[in-house]
């Protein structure tokens, strides 16, 4: 097994997802297949190879420090599922 149900559950929590029991079963097995396929990569010698994290090598894309108009409060909240006054509302954060 590349990945156990416990690990899938942990990763799901990190990603803020939940699964029903039977979904969990299916997912774990599918993920195992996929991760097994990834093992291919272990046969490639990558000693000294710089990881490629961008499609192109670019430097210094900047903008100047100039203020431009923001959205109005109503526009910022226009898509909010639970706006309250001038705010986005969420269930209480328990600290």
């Amino acid at each position: 097994m590349k990945i156990t149900r416990t690990e899938v559950a942990h990763v799901a929590h990190l990603a803020r997802l939940t699964f029903r029991e039977e979904e969990m079963e299916k997912f774990t097995s599918q993920l195992n297949d996929i991760l097994l396929y990834m093992d291919k990569l272990n046969s490639v010698d990558t000693t000294g190879v710089e990881p490629m994290t961008h499609a192109t090598v670019l430097y210094n894309a900047f903008r100047e420090d100039v203020v431009k108009p923001s959205l109005a409060n109503e526009q910022s909240l226009a898509n909010a599922p639970d706006p309250r006054g001038e705010f986005f509302r969420v269930p209480k954060v328990i600290e």
């Binding site: 490639v44 990558t46 190879v49 710089e50 990881p51």
Partner: peptide, 14 residues
């Protein structure tokens, strides 16, 4: 083992 390795192989593909 995964992300970094894959990014390195990506460099080789390029």
């Amino acid at each position: 083992a995964y992300y970094k390795k894959a990014s390195q192989v990506r460099a080789l593909i390029r």
